[in-house]
Amino acid sequence: MIRLALISSAETAQAYGALSTRLRRAAWTAFAPLDSGGSGQALGQVTEATSAEELFTNQADVFDAVVIAADQASAGRLAKAASSLGKPVLAGAAGSNLTALGQADTLLMPAHPWRFLPSIQSVKRSLDAGKLGQAGLLRIHRWLPPGADVESQAERILPDADLACWLFGSAPESVWSLQSAANPGYIQFHLGFANDGMAMIDIAASLPSGGDYFSLTMIGGTGAAYADDHHNMNLLYSGGQPNAIRTSQGRADLGGQLQEFVDAISEQREPSVTPTDTATAVAVVEHILESADNRQVIGGKEGN
């Protein structure tokens, strides 16, 4: 049984606490809040530190591995501290400051929860099983309300850059991006991969508050997969025009990611998401933003 410590907000602790009964070969044993006064009560009977520093200093013997759900700057700092104790780390808000830790001997799994969504897992399994043939075109539309999730555009587009690299199995050879002069929360990017693979992705952080939208299509040589919120809408009638309500995928993303972390520790193997993956996605994001700023094709080749 692997003993897990969580460093997070109380709200995130609620989400992880709800997953406790599904977790195999691991249990929560410690909690440290990011915000003063935050409680890990949702995790059950756990040792509660007053802070991450206090957890690392005084409670290091009550946990075997650490899950960090923090902003980018804190996640890097805390992951480094945990690694120095020899504790495996699952760190959220992964960014460039986390990738530098990837060389450490201790297991470090960057959190890429978008990969663990049931819909995305299904697409990936179909691709890996050869049902779709060679990956040809990845199309993603992701629309969000303003300020819904992250602080910067780089953070906002990281998940989709990562999904593209993951599904094609490599970084793109060329990058072309466009922004909207009228909408600073909008960007679209056009990636070219080896073997004529291509991805076309648009991300808008300008929807009115109240809901988001995600659609992913993967077209392969022999089949296609459509993971599309539009297909998964139900209708609510409460006067006037009906409202579309999306069927939830629950928090299977968090659960799947956490189990993969635990399994990698148990099986003494590399996790399915590594700091190298994050570094690749971060580099692609930099190219996307560079292309948008410079209006130049980044990378590329003579024709395709």
């Binding site: 040809g136 075109l137 466009l178 909207s180 009228a182 679209q188 056009h190 004529d196 291509m198 991805a199």
Partner: peptide
């Protein structure tokens, strides 16, 4: 038999 096109239109509209 497969193509992706980024579009810049008049009026500052973008698309694909």
């Amino acid at each position: 038999d497969l193509a992706t096109v980024s579009l810049e239109l008049g009026g500052g509209v973008v698309g694909s």
